[in-house]
Computed example of a mutant assay.
Amino acid sequence: ILIYMYKENKNYDQAEKVCLDGIQQSHSVDFYHLLIDIYQKTNQKNKLINVLKQLLCRKQGNVEYYKQLKQLYNQEEWQKEKQEIITYLEKQNNNIIDIYLEEKMYYSLMKYFKKTNDVIQIKKYEDILFKNVPKDIIEFYENYIYKVLKKSGTREIYQQMSSYLKSIARYDFDKAEDIYHQLELLYPKRYAMLEEMKIERSLSVQLIDIIFAIENSSNHVTSYYNKKTQKIVSLFEELIDQNLIDEIDENWDQYIALLSSYDVHEYQIMQDFILNLKNKDIRDQLWNTIHGKGAFRRFKDLAARFGILEDWFLYLNQQYRKIAIKWCRENNIIYVE
């Protein structure tokens, strides 16, 4: 209460003194936060930097304090200061994963994981690591798999090792296949292990191709995903391709049907868009116009008049994207942005 009274009267020197005394007695983070507010209001940059550094060390590399500190330097100053701060935090054995991510220091992040041998944490960030330091994480997973499987294990252990091998396969199938064949040579009689560790080449697709196919689905167009070629093919009612029809009929197990216009429920999407509008008058007028034949045409005409037609198209595209992602996940297909 005393601190707030001093701040209210702009007696910042006294407020600062009470905060510093409070820190010495209780080390409460609240006093640090009050000091930050005081130093911000009085433009005391050096003191503000000092407090943020103390908090950064106390809170084991809390990235929010790190970001606040970063904003107080120009780019040239920060490059030097950043390395000193990170080096200090590393020596204190602090968990600074979020700081590594903030600075895009992926090699340092991987080095930290190797040091801690924390495969659970690596699994959490593996997409980022595979994208930026693929060789390092593949090598780590490979060594970890061999190390664990030196001893015979349970089904649960084999399933865990299989998850790491499958992660490798998503990014480098040939490497994962080599590891599996090596395990076959090392442990030919571990049938349960080999059964769990078996991998299949992952299916993938460009997400935009799925979205485009769904957007253009109709009573006259039917699209399929070919698991062998990993491409999308379409059948058009007005342009009969008998060869493609025969190919799909003869190899039905190689094709996955994409969603049709009946599966998308665009009318429901339109209703949801209207119900989410903040302007009650516009919302009510649009709602009243979407009943009966020609609902979509009337809706678009009125939306254009209200100046929200672009908002509708953006919303519709976002919903198509969600639908496409859901379809990919349900069919175990990796989508590429």
Rank of each mutant, 00 (worst) to 15 (best):
L2I: 13
I3P: 05
I3R: 06
Y4R: 11
K7R: 12
E8Y: 15
Y12L: 11
D13F: 07
G22K: 03
Q24K: 15
Q25Y: 05
Q25I: 13
Y32E: 14
H33R: 12
L34S: 10
L34C: 07
L35S: 02
Y39D: 03
K41Q: 14
N43H: 12
L48Y: 10
L48D: 04
I49C: 02
Q54M: 08
Q54G: 12
Q54I: 04
C57P: 00
Q68K: 12
E76P: 04
W78D: 08
W78E: 07
Q83A: 10
Q83L: 11
I85H: 09
L89I: 11
N94K: 15
I97A: 00
I99K: 06
K104A: 06
M105T: 00
Y107G: 05
S108V: 01
M110G: 09
K111E: 15
K111C: 05
K114W: 02
T116M: 06
I120Y: 03
Q121S: 14
Q121T: 09
I122F: 03
Y125W: 02
D127A: 14
L129I: 01
V133T: 05
P134N: 06
I137Y: 05
E139S: 10
N143A: 09
N143H: 13
Y144R: 06
Y144F: 14
K147P: 02
V148M: 08
T154H: 02
E156L: 13
M161N: 14
M161R: 12
S162A: 15
S167T: 15
S167W: 00
S167G: 02
A169W: 01
Y171P: 01
D172W: 00
D172P: 01
F173D: 02
K175W: 01
K175E: 08
K175Y: 07
E177H: 00
Y180C: 01
P188M: 12
M193R: 04
M193Q: 09
L194S: 13
E196G: 01
E200I: 06
I210E: 05
I211P: 10
A213Q: 09
N216Y: 07
S223C: 10
S223P: 00
Y224E: 04
K231V: 09
I232F: 04
S234T: 09
L235K: 07
E238Y: 10
E238V: 11
I240M: 04
N243A: 13
L244P: 10
L244M: 12
I245C: 07
I248N: 11
I248F: 14
D249G: 00
E250V: 02
S261K: 12
Y262P: 02
D263W: 07
D263F: 08
V264L: 13
Y267H: 07
I269M: 09
D272P: 06
D272T: 03
L277G: 01
K280T: 11
D281C: 07
D281I: 12
W287G: 15
N288C: 05
T289Q: 06
H291V: 04
G292L: 11
K293S: 08
G294F: 03
F296G: 02
R297P: 08
R298T: 02
R298A: 08
R305N: 12
G307E: 07
E310I: 02
W312P: 04
W312D: 01
R321H: 15
A324R: 09
I325W: 07
I325N: 03
K326R: 14
C328V: 13
R329T: 14
R329N: 13
Y335M: 10
E337V: 14
E337P: 15
